[in-house]
């Protein structure tokens, strides 16, 4: 299964506005994307399009997360989402 790691760049972590922007972008992808903290088992991964899941994940700035997806367009989807995570969304 394609996967990518990303380091959270937003100052407030994956909370509030960054979480909303990311969940919305994840929901627009053609494939289901999951998110987990780096080192956590894939079985515990959460739905990346769920803002509530993202909030319970509690990822702070500098934390490393793993994104996973499967199917047509998975690689492109993951690349786009990694880019979003590695942007400081609080600055926009």
């Amino acid at each position: 299964m394609p996967e990518r790691t990303a380091t959270i760049a937003s100052r407030s972590g994956l909370h509030a506005r960054p979480a909303a922007l990311f969940a919305e972008a994840a929901g627009e992808q053609p494939v289901e994307v999951t998110i987990a903290m780096h080192g956590e088992p894939a079985d515990d991964a959460l739905d990346a399009a769920s803002i509530l899941s993202l909030m319970t994940l509690g990822a702070a700035k500098g934390d490393v997360v793993v994104l996973r997806a499967e199917g047509d367009g998975a690689d492109a989807a993951l690349d786009a989402l990694v880019k979003l995570l590695e942007t400081d969304l609080d600055a926009e």
């Binding site: 509030a16 506005r17 979480a19 909303a20 919305e24 739905d47 803002i51 509530l52 899941s53």
Partner: peptide
């Protein structure tokens, strides 16, 4: 605006 956007997303949240 940010709070309303986040709250709107919660309404159709898959986890919920």
């Amino acid at each position: 605006k940010a709070v309303l956007e986040a709250t709107a997303l919660m309404a159709k949240d898959t986890m919920l």
